[in-house]
């Protein structure tokens, strides 16, 4: 649904996006991560056919962003970094205005707008002035605007920023339901937990370049190392240490706990447990100690600093 090849954007002497290639399939959520000024927003603007790439090309929903920008814009829903609403308008009136710009008939505009407001838990927003909305409500209205014309591609910049946990969950559920409806979705976010929760794949951008892309599990394996296991013992690590070190690489110990890495936990863990039981070492738990996406992100961004 989205295919970008060698996308580059220059502003005078500044290269905002440099030779970026990625694909997003229908029914896939790609999270775009990166520090401020990394080029995420510029990438989204190029994919939304708002900015012309200086080099490279992108096909979005079957249309070329360079040669058919209007067709691309008709097929995408863009949630911008700032909600950017008209504060003197009413919620329903605002959605109706954008529905008209997308060429929806009056009945469809009404039906979809009301349904979206209800989906986001704010049906009363229809006849309230936008200036009276909370920040979270404004963000949800902006998201409703992006989804109003039922686009096959959604480009969402910080979709849950400024929202309370309940509203954020409503929005995440909406994104996941859109994924199930075979929409291609790109989410720019700084919320790594949310990215991990939503995204099928993660792309990390640094100084305009794509520095890593893959599923969260792939990124963790490639960039942080093999799975990390945490062994919790009853009476200290003393005797267990030598047994575990023969079978796996011990990363750290702390009181009654040992952390070790293994490429093959499915075979190594039973061996370790068997050896510990045979040696009369009492085990409380053996669990996978996950690297978080934050570890991955900080490692990548830190290494390219």
């Amino acid at each position: 649904m989205i295919e970008a090849h060698g996308l580059t954007k220059r502003f005078d002497n500044l290269v905002a996006v440099d030779d970026l290639s990625l694909t997003v399939a229908a029914g896939e959520v790609l999270a775009l991560l990166g520090p401020n000024g990394a080029g995420k927003t510029t990438t989204v603007r190029m994919l939304a056919a708002i900015l012309r790439p200086s080099k490279g090309r992108a096909i979005v929903a079957g249309h070329d962003v360079l040669t058919e920008p209007a067709a691309v814009r008709r097929k995408i829903g863009l949630l911008t970094e700032y909600p950017g609403l008209y504060r003197r308008m009413y919620g329903g009136e605002y959605l109706d205005f954008f529905g008209r710009l997308y060429g929806l008939d009056a009945e469809t505009r009404q039906r979809r707008a009301r349904r979206l407001l209800e989906q986001f838990g704010m049906p009363e927003a229809w006849d309230r002035r936008i200036g009276e909305y909370s920040k979270g409500m404004q963000q949800k209205l902006a998201l409703a605007r992006a989804m109003l014309h039922d686009p096959p591609v959604l480009l969402l910049d910080e979709p849950t920023s400024a929202m309370d946990p309940y509203s954020a969950k409503l929005v995440r559920d909406a994104i996941l339901s859109l994924r199930n409806m075979r929409r291609a979705i790109v989410v720019c976010t700084h919320n790594l937990a949310e990215a991990e929760l939503l995204a099928d794949r993660i792309a990390i951008i640094r100084r305009g370049r794509l520095v890593a892309i893959g599923t969260p599990a792939e990124l963790k394996r490639e960039l942080v190392g093999p799975p990390l296991m945490e062994l919790h013992l009853k009476n200290g690590v003393g005797r267990a240490y030598s047994l575990v070190s023969q079978l796996a690489h011990i990363v750290a110990t702390d009181g009654n706990r040992i952390w070790y890495e293994t490429e093959t936990p499915e075979t190594t863990n039973p061996l370790i447990l068997r050896a510990l039981v045979a040696a009369d070492v009492e085990v409380i738990t053996l669990a996978r100690s996950e690297w978080s996406l934050e570890d991955v992100y900080l490692r990548i961004v830190g290494s390219t600093q």
């Binding site: 939304a48 708002i50 209007a70 067709a71 814009r73 008709r74 995408i76 863009l78 911008t80 970094e81 700032y82 909600p83 950017g84 609403l85 008209y86 954008f98 710009l101 997308y102 060429g103 902006a142 605007r145």
Partner: peptide, 14 residues
């Protein structure tokens, strides 16, 4: 200034 232009720029309007 109010950042409300970008949503308009994302519509099919030329």
């Amino acid at each position: 200034e109010r950042k409300s232009l970008e949503p308009l720029l994302a519509t099919p309007l030329s």
